[in-house]
């Protein structure tokens, strides 16, 4: 029982940065914009988040710095891909190269420093309940925030007018424009939200996960977040499941090794990726008429005037 609780706790922590970054990218893509620069925004968020927390001594300031850095990075993307109608795939990849270099420059003076990680919630009585106590009532703020955020995103997208308009921009920007909605402005907001989430996800790594900064510490998590959005077929509910599934597979393969189950570790490491491909094929196949991708995803829009 204790082992199960322990595994679930590790899964929650491992999934949180994926969920945060993927939530932002989901909103961005729902508005019709494909930003492949998540990894770049995350790593700059990690460097700035750690720097902010280290200089100020406050985790909250650090998290805000991470978000701000993510937003600034996303604004470069918005300027290019929305303002200048540049191809989004190329811009996103360029953003990642830029971000990796920039985070190295920013983070150079913070390498080797150490901070106190974000505190975990402790509610006397509740946190001590066996099995579920620490899972429900013993996490750090990032974990709760990631869940609140995805619920809020679901609510806004499906239950409010701004959400409807945002999805309309993603599905058919020409009609949305014809109806008088400022497509580019809405998309810019969505991209900035994506940047904030990616920056926060990056900041979580040095603030909550491993309380120090090292160049390249995101180690490809931004790419996994991108995969998750498609894996979830752009639905917030599935995104949560997908993020935890991905986290679970990566943790369980470590546990399987520790328990001495003799499968090549490379095969274990490959499992999450193979699983994504297979699940994607299955869900795409189950739905006649192809995927539920926003119809205008990745396409350039320049309003006629």
């Amino acid at each position: 029982m204790e082992l199960i609780e322990a595994i679930l706790l590790s899964v929650l922590a491992a999934s949180t940065p994926l969920l945060l970054a993927a939530t932002g990218e989901l909103v961005t893509e729902r508005a019709g914009v494909l930003n492949l620069g998540v990894e770049g925004m995350m790593i700059v968020g990690a460097a700035c988040g750690f720097g902010g927390a280290w200089l100020s001594g406050s985790i909250i300031v650090g998290a805000l710095c991470g978000m701000l850095a993510g937003i600034l990075m996303s604004l470069i993307f918005a300027l290019m891909a929305l303002g200048l109608a540049v191809n989004q795939v190329a811009t996103g990849l360029a953003l990642t190269i830029f971000g990796i270099g920039l985070s190295g420059l920013i983070g150079a003076r913070f390498v080797g420093e150490k901070i106190t990680p974000a505190p975990h919630l402790h509610v006397p009585g509740l946190t001590d309940i066996p099995l579920v106590g620490r899972i429900l009532f013993g996490q750090d703020a990032f974990v709760y925030l990631s869940l609140v955020l995805i619920v809020a995103v679901w609510y806004v997208l499906y239950r409010t007018r701004p959400g409807l308009i945002l999805r309309a921009c993603g599905d058919n920007h020409i009609s949305a424009h014809a109806l008088g909605y400022p497509v580019l402005r809405i998309r810019t907001c969505a991209v900035m939200f994506g940047g904030a989430c990616a920056g926060l996800a990056g900041a979580y790594l040095p603030l909550g996960y491993t309380p120090f900064f090292i160049p390249g510490m995101t180690a490809g998590r931004g790419w996994i977040a991108l995969a998750l959005v498609v894996f979830a077929s752009w639905l917030p509910g599935r995104l949560v499941i997908g993020a935890y599934l991905f986290g679970a597979v990566s943790i369980l393969q470590l546990h399987a090794q520790g328990a001495g189950i003799g499968i090549p570790s490379q095969l274990m490491s490959a499992l999450p990726y193979l699983a994504t491909v297979i699940v994607l094929v299955l869900i795409s196949r189950a739905r006649t008429g192809g995927s539920t991708a926003p119809a205008a995803l990745g396409t350039v829009f320049v309003p006629d005037r």
Binding site: A227, L274, T276, R285, S291
Partner: peptide, 11 residues
């Protein structure tokens, strides 16, 4: 199957 090639090729 209509699975997004962006994702599968990346995986």
């Amino acid at each position: 199957f209509g699975a997004s090639e962006i994702l599968t090729s990346l995986m």
